[in-house]
Design a binder for these strands. Structure first.
Lengths: 157, 157
DNA sequence: GCGTAATAGTTGAAAATGTAACTATCAACA
DNA sequence: TGTTGATAGTTACATTTTCAACTATTACGC
């Protein structure tokens, strides 16, 4: 056990606020909750629904499996979100005749409109946040995210 | 709308995998799930329970409100986690006689033992992860986390 | 002191999530 | 062609989480 030279007191075995998983979670939670207000208040969407919408908007067309991979969500979440968006009239399914297990999903007009709105709000949200920082901090954040992403695809399987 | 010079195709209104809230969440989720295996497998603990344990281990003594603030969890999570840890015999409560609304929580012997184990595992986990990276990446990650934390206490209220 | 507001913590019910099992379809290959 | 195994997606059920309401106690203003 080390001694903190600043305070002179004994360090605890683990300092939670310096622990990587905790720091990451705390930040993600803060940012998520903050941004979630936008799609929750505006459209009553859940996060899985927002991610499916974002994936479809980005891809144009995709299967549920594509979205699972792209949005990093479990297939049950995607399945439920797709059903919800379908009932809302924002997407439609079309089963692939070559492989009738999978269905191609596309946004409807209404879905596209919602996606367009949300994409603007999302970019505004990010820009506003980044604008509150110095150039050095912005670069540090992006570099840090890159490094973590690179580290985790390698480290965690 | 910009054009991607690499692929030549039109950029979507929003690229999910470049969007800050998504990136953060994805990373936090990966790391959390990975680390959660340790306290789940070993002790059947949930994340709120682990955080309460970690907070108490670090502070020695604290009230539920202290833990709410320190562990960034909603008070209902903390309340239920405290109950669970108490039933497991890992902490005990003592109501403050000066202000009988609040109670002081401390770890029992068994709780301290579990905390000690977990603290070692947590540091090992982090060290092993960091050891898989270069010095530049390690510094980038820490700088990025610092920058985000600084940015968010200012930006989000 | 007395009424009102604030704080510490708990609880119930609804919503979301995770896990595993399930249906349907397709692929591989003897 | 028939059996075995994989894949796409859904569903049931148990566990967690959320949200709001609640109890108990203390603080404040007059």
């Amino acid at each position: 056990m080390m001694t903190d030279t600043k305070t002179g007191r004994q360090d605890a075995p683990l300092v939670l606020e310096a622990f990587l998983p905790y720091r990451l979670n705390r930040l993600a939670d803060l940012v998520s909750r903050d941004f979630a207000r936008i799609y929750k208040d505006r459209h009553g969407m859940t996060r899985p629904e927002w991610r499916v919408l974002a994936s479809l908007g980005q891809f144009g067309q995709a299967t549920a499996s594509d979205i699972v991979a792209h949005s990093s969500q479990h297939k049950t979440k995607v399945s439920r979100a797709v059903t919800a968006l379908e009932q809302r009239g924002w997407l439609k399914r079309e089963t692939d005749e070559a492989d009738r297990r999978s269905e191609h999903l596309t946004l409807t007009k209404a879905g596209l409109r919602a996606y367009g709105e949300m994409a603007v709000l999302a970019r505004t949200y990010e820009d506003r946040y980044m604008a509150g920082l110095g150039e050095k901090e912005r670069r540090a954040i992006l570099a840090g995210l890159d490094a973590m992403e690179a580290g985790f695809v390698a480290g965690v399987k």
